Computed example of a mutant assay.
Amino acid sequence: MRTWPAAGSRARAAARDRVEREALQQGVRYRRIFVMLLSVIVVVSSVVVLLGTIGLFAETRARPLTPAEQNQYKQEEIARRWQAWPATGVFPEEVKYLGLDRAQQYARRVGIAPETECGKGVDASVAGILDNHGCVTMLRATYVDQTASFVITVGVAVLKDEASRVSASEELTQDDRVGVLPVAFPGTVTERFGPDQRQRTGWVGAGPYIVFSTAGYADGRTRAAIPPEEILHSELWPAAKSVGNQIAYFLADPPKVPPCTQGNVC
């Protein structure tokens, strides 16, 4: 039997409509899925940003320093003083010391030597110890006592940290004939002060620093020319030791620590 054209057209049209409706419905479903995924991504991103902001605020907001942070602040401040301070800050123009009858007197700085390698500022036996423990540099200055009778050279050996300084100090001997090498300044009362003129030497630890001191007579007398009992009991060495200790105190004096991570207000 022959199919009537009108009936076939209606069937094909209905089929096309059905296919289009199914395609449209599928597109709507895909769009809904896409919108849902996009919404989830936006929500998750917002949560991540919010949590990150909260975390950043928690990290950067001012809060009291912990005891460990306070100690670290002190150590870092002390360790950088040899660079942060001017040379005249490390070696003040005048340093107090106690003279005869414990009278307060002042040693006067004659000059500051150029910064040098640790091994070049001390005797060889001391140089090896400093080098083995990572000595960074050596700073030296020379003073005279209030009567200009004694010449005192102070040397600051800068170690990389306090632990290194402690280790190096444990290996230093108590031999008072070796230590920092004197620095003389021509045309001054110190010009005759050399290694042979050293009467005694010593050192003290302070933070990451070993502060050496050595002293002699301004008239150029050698250690060999002085009776042993005078070397041990003269006024010279207490004055020299006091000057070295004062400079060590300046360098290692604990700084004032801010109470909070961002200053004085938490």
Rank of each mutant, 00 (worst) to 15 (best):
R108V: 00
V180M: 04
A103L: 07
S9V: 01
P228R: 11
R12D: 14
A224K: 12
L24M: 10
A141T: 07
D161M: 05
E162V: 10
P238T: 15
A23H: 14
R18H: 09
R31Q: 08
T188L: 12
A168S: 06
R12I: 04
A68L: 11
S234M: 08
N245L: 15
T173V: 10
C135N: 02
M1H: 10
F185G: 03
E20T: 11
Q199K: 08
K256W: 06
V110Q: 02
Y143P: 02
Q83M: 08
E76H: 04
Y143R: 03
V43L: 15
M138A: 12
L232C: 01
Q83V: 09
M1F: 05
V47W: 15
A224I: 04
P254H: 04
G119N: 05
K120L: 09
S234C: 12
A248S: 13
Q72M: 12
E115Q: 10
P64A: 15
K74E: 01
Q105V: 01
K160V: 07
G194L: 14
A218I: 01
P255I: 12
I247F: 15
I54E: 01
V158L: 09
S39W: 00
G111T: 00
V243F: 10
Q104L: 06
R198N: 07
R2G: 05
P228Q: 06
V211I: 15
L139H: 12
T222L: 09
V110K: 05
P182M: 13
I129V: 12
R80E: 02
G202Q: 09
P238F: 15
S45K: 03
K256L: 14
G155H: 05
V144D: 03
D145P: 00
C260W: 09
E76R: 12
T222I: 09
S213T: 15
A68Y: 08
P227D: 08
V95Q: 06
E76D: 14
D175E: 09
C135V: 01
A68V: 13
V183M: 11
A252F: 09
E77A: 11
V183T: 13
V122Q: 08
G263W: 00
F57K: 03
N264K: 04
L98T: 14
E235F: 13
P64M: 13
G121K: 11
S213I: 11
A79V: 03
S169C: 03
A107R: 07
S164K: 04
E170T: 05
F250M: 03
R223S: 13
Q70A: 02
R200N: 11
S39F: 01
A157M: 12
R102N: 14
I210F: 10
